[in-house]
Design a protein around this nucleic acid. Structure first.
Lengths: 207, 207
DNA sequence: ATTATATATGAACAACTGTTAATTTAATCT
DNA sequence: AGATTAAATTAACAGTTGTTCATATATAAT
């Protein structure tokens, strides 16, 4: 009961630690985000952290686990119903818009930063990136393109290649946006590029 | 004279420090690559580093300055001569092959890792990435595509958009390759993708 | 009201950080 | 040869790191 009260009034300490960690990891990276900085951000002493987490890595893993849990790999987000596929261009638009939404989502942006910062120093994140992000998206998209090809909606080609050609510019765009946002620079130019990419791509593959 | 002798026999200490730093920065990141680790890699004590560099940041800047000095922005690499443009597809192939070469170049790979690792924590590298890599490549490519459009070699579109569509998959590919290489995983699948991308792209834009 | 439990604190630890100073070693110049 | 200069070493510094422990405080259950 009191747990509920805590949650309502201030949010549980554990949640606060995760939020503070996410913020600091994404701004400073793992090594620079010290347990003391995290504790200070929460408003407690560093020793109190160890009541909620085994150690610093435990905190990081808890934060990092969120990276691949929610955003892209939800089977339901870019829906893959035959009805949708009969209007293939609008399906691609939907996929890109989902991607755009995630790109400009503050919380997801922090997770993306953590991912990018630690990608080259953490095998777990590398595997997650390739399996949960790249492979999953590629698989989903290539199924879509394969179906489109069979129905004669797009030109015949390697579905995996086509999926890659569709996904890469979206990722690059996301990276670009994230970089600009760090320095509070304008991203209005880039925000329209998601749609432009889909249009260009569709012009490239439609029969 | 004796300086020359040193260089011939062992390489100057300063050069050795830069090599060791490049290696460690790219493997561990700035913070984790301590001055003691760098000194140990060179084979001297940490205090001796300060005979050659002002401080740690001075070493990093010296290494980081190489990132944007050599690889892509050389005006001569992807040549932009009218003669080349009359065979547009082979020009794009050349550009992509240049990119592929850089991707699989051991030394350049280290610099790319440093860039990616510190990209989100170092404004200087962010600016360098956007100005020296992104903008420069985009500008060069969009001029090419603009010319191609005028000569009726490719379909009419926004040259900048087309440049982006051409560049993004190359970058994504490079990222992917670099990640696999960290874990010594095979990249044979990916090595053929550079050519496939150009073929797919050409099929997409040729009139 | 007393006990039990969860969570906070302050202090301390050993290890590591970047950097400096005094000193020794080695190479160069006259 | 001796003097000068460059580059190395040893030792120490003040700070920070992650983690632990004994203790205090507040909440929950009896």
């Amino acid at each position: 009961m009191s747990q509920n009260r805590d949650i309502v009034i201030t949010g549980s300490t554990k949640k606060k630690i995760l939020d503070a960690s996410m913020k600091l990891f994404s701004e400073l990276g793992y090594k620079n985000a010290s347990v003391r900085k995290i504790a200070a951000e929460v408003g407690i002493r560093e020793s109190a952290l160890y009541n909620h987490f085994k150690n610093k890595e435990d905190i990081f893993l808890s934060v990092a686990s969120e990276i691949f849990s929610t955003p892209f790999n939800k089977e339901d987000s870019p829906v893959l119903s035959p009805a949708q596929l009969s209007n293939p261009k609008s399906y691609l638009h939907k996929f890109a818009m989902e991607f755009k939404l995630i790109t400009f989502d503050k919380a997801k942006e922090s997770l993306f930063r953590i991912l990018m910062i630690e990608l080259f120093q953490n095998k777990q994140l590398r595997d997650g990136f390739i399996n949960e992000f790249h492979n999953k998206n590629m698989k989903a998209l290539s199924v879509v393109f394969f179906t489109m090809m069979q129905e004669g909606l797009v030109r015949s080609s390697d579905p995996l290649l086509m999926a890659n050609e569709f996904l890469s510019p979206l990722f690059y765009l996301r990276l670009h946006v994230t970089l600009l946002r760090i320095d509070n620079e304008s991203t209005t130019n880039l925000s329209t590029q998601f749609e432009k990419h889909v249009d260009f791509f569709w012009e490239s593959v439609k029969v």
